[in-house]
């Protein structure tokens, strides 16, 4: 539904808009669905003129088909697969984060969602030399941890600082400021953000559930609508600007005690790939193990329910031991 305005297409002048409005026609939808012949009589406009206006409006607002071959061509030229920097996760994601898609990480408290997000941000900004937008809604982001991860990659301070400058951070704590920010990025601020060198390749939202969950349930249904708004703008942004969107989600426990991602069934259709992170259950009450398991629960590329183990220490490892560790990781998985 778009409101009719003068100058939207040739022939649609102020007088005509007024006449149409008097006849109860205010939106493009009304024009398209009304009987042109009858309308022409009521508004005393020529049938031909109205018909032309309708054709232009239809052409302006309709979607048009694209051939699969063209689409494939475009896909090959524009899609990038961004490595997460962690071989086990890459293996699960076959073989990384795809641009133009939403990937979701869900998991309980302390399961390593934020750590994976930090790792991905650092890997993209340092190894791939591209910009990253990090939207922090839980206050969990600490730059000192990013620095720690960078220090594990390089000892060159200048490179560390340059990499930190390629990570752009938004700290937003409610859904409306998140929407403002996403629409702002969508409306062109995304390109402005890449002034510091390298284009924006990933948008990370940690966590999307923190701002949406307080609105869901109860008698109000506004929360659902806002959730779909967030999903919509994330999806179109990912597609139009060819960025990978990485979001995190909390988990809930079903009646049977099984862990499942939060935000309900409607949200489950939004991410293309979903990964569930879990702590390794140990006999001891509190384990300080940094090993986490990642389970693929939704994917269009690989069979679901594949499980991989990875170590959160991976991103803070020092360069020298990395080769040995990689070997161990490969045999382990």
């Amino acid at each position: 539904m778009v409101v009719l305005r003068e100058g939207m297409c040739p022939g649609l002048d102020e007088a005509l808009v007024r006449d149409l409005r008097a006849a109860g026609i205010t939106t493009v939808e009304d024009v398209v669905s009304s009987d042109i012949e009858e309308l022409a009589q009521r508004c005393t406009v020529s049938y031909k003129a109205l018909f032309a206006i309708r054709r232009v409006l239809l052409a302006q607002h309709a979607a048009f088909p694209v051939s699969g071959a063209d689409l494939y061509e475009e896909l090959l030229s524009s899609t990038a697969i961004l490595s997460t920097g962690n071989p086990s996760l890459d293996k699960l994601l076959d073989p990384g984060l795809y641009t133009g898609e939403i990937t979701e990480l869900s998991g309980g408290p302390g399961s390593g969602k934020s750590q994976v997000c930090f790792g991905v941000a650092v890997h993209i900004s340092y190894q791939l030399k591209q910009s990253v937008i990090f939207i922090d809604t839980t206050g969990g982001l600490t730059a000192s941890r990013l620095l720690q991860m960078l220090q594990a990659e390089t000892s060159n301070t200048e490179e560390q600082m340059a990499a930190l400058q390629r990570i752009h951070i938004f700290r937003l704590f409610n859904v409306f400021s998140l929407l403002d920010c996403l629409y702002g990025l969508r409306g062109g601020r995304l390109q402005q953000a890449c002034v510091g060198g390298g284009s924006v390749k990933a948008v990370i939202v940690d966590s999307v559930s923190a701002v949406i969950a307080p609105l869901l349930g109860g008698k109000q249904n506004e929360g659902m609508s806002l959730m779909i708004q967030v999903a919509g703008v994330l999806k179109t942004m990912a597609k139009d600007f060819n960025v990978a969107a990485l979001v995190t989600n909390h988990v809930t426990r079903s009646v049977g005690g099984e862990v499942q991602p939060g935000l309900g069934a409607s949200w489950s259709h939004i991410p293309r790939t979903r990964i569930l992170l879990e702590r390794q259950e140990r006999a001891a009450d509190i384990s300080h193990s940094s090993v986490r398991s990642a389970t693929l629960i939704k994917s269009s590329r690989r069979p679901c329910h594949i499980r991989e183990q990875f170590d959160l220490q991976w991103w803070s490892r020092s360069k020298e031991e990395s080769s040995g560790k990689r070997k161990r990781d490969e045999t382990g998985s």
Partner: peptide, 25 residues
């Protein structure tokens, strides 16, 4: 209008990780 025209409204809350590091320190 705030959403459509004002480019600064949202951008001011953006900072790079380097700025954040300095703030934290």
């Amino acid at each position: 209008r705030k959403e459509g025209g004002g480019g600064d409204a949202g951008a001011s809350s953006s900072l790079t990780a380097l700025d954040l590091l300095q703030k934290e320190q």
